[in-house]
Design a protein around this nucleic acid. Structure first.
Lengths: 122, 122
DNA sequence: CAATCAGTTGGTTGATTGATAAATTGTTGT
DNA sequence: ACAACAATTTATCAATCAACCAACTGATTG
């Protein structure tokens, strides 16, 4: 009753909050969230799962994923805007690959987790 | 004109596509994409960045993130529905923690990448 | 330089999503 | 049982996003 104006008390009683306990910096979270968001779509992730194995051009991706070319191109565009993939022009073809190993690891880890919990869907 | 029904020819010329080159199974991608999607939001990721350090209750998270409690609770609900976090009731308080080390690694990796590319935002 | 192939861009539409506030459930202490 | 606190739920609204089709650019070949 005497300490009801101390808003932090309830939490402090439950656990003494360490001073240094802070969320990751906002800018870092924004960047990381942008990467995750870009990976957080089935079609884009399937694209990435292929690029994780091999550099591929838009036409090849279109065939492997059995989709139409503009759709693939749009997804690649978004992935490139978030710097998850790189492009390299070779004659008529534009080849896409993952921009760095860090991205490759994130994709591999995510897919690995997806395999473990495959039963969650059914 | 004579070969216009052979759709694969153009890509085959650019690169001989390995037989075994297939995207990750659809179900795996769906599950992995769902995880990434859940992480792909700044507010949820900040939540996760805290839970990666320590188990915390909703009230504590509300204070640390300086937001209102229902908002935090909603985000936690989504994270729980995707099985990224676990709950444990202790008296009046519900404590949240990451559901497993795999998730913790993904978060750590994502944030690490976010730190590297902090300059991308400015 | 015209024709064709490879890829991108723009605009629209329908579906998801996140924020907010209000009402409700669950828990403890008196 | 009641009051006070902790957390969830529900509903609604605005914003964001992905799919789709059409038009366009850029590069190569005849």
């Amino acid at each position: 009753m005497a300490i009801e104006n101390d808003m932090a008390s309830c939490a402090a009683e439950a656990h003494p909050l360490p001073e240094g306990l802070l969320p990751a910096p906002l800018e870092v979270c924004e960047r990381a969230a942008a990467i995750f968001r870009a990976m957080g779509d089935v079609n884009r992730l399937r694209l990435l799962s292929l690029l994780a194995k091999k550099e591929l051009c838009v036409t090849e991706l279109t065939e492997l994923l059995e989709d139409n070319l503009p759709a693939i191109s749009q997804r690649l565009r978004l992935l490139r805007s978030e710097r998850l993939v790189r492009t390299r022009r070779r004659g008529k073809h534009v080849f896409y690959s993952l921009s760095d190993n860090h991205i490759a690891e994130l994709i591999a880890n995510g897919l690995a987790h997806g395999e473990e919990h495959e039963d969650d869907i059914a």
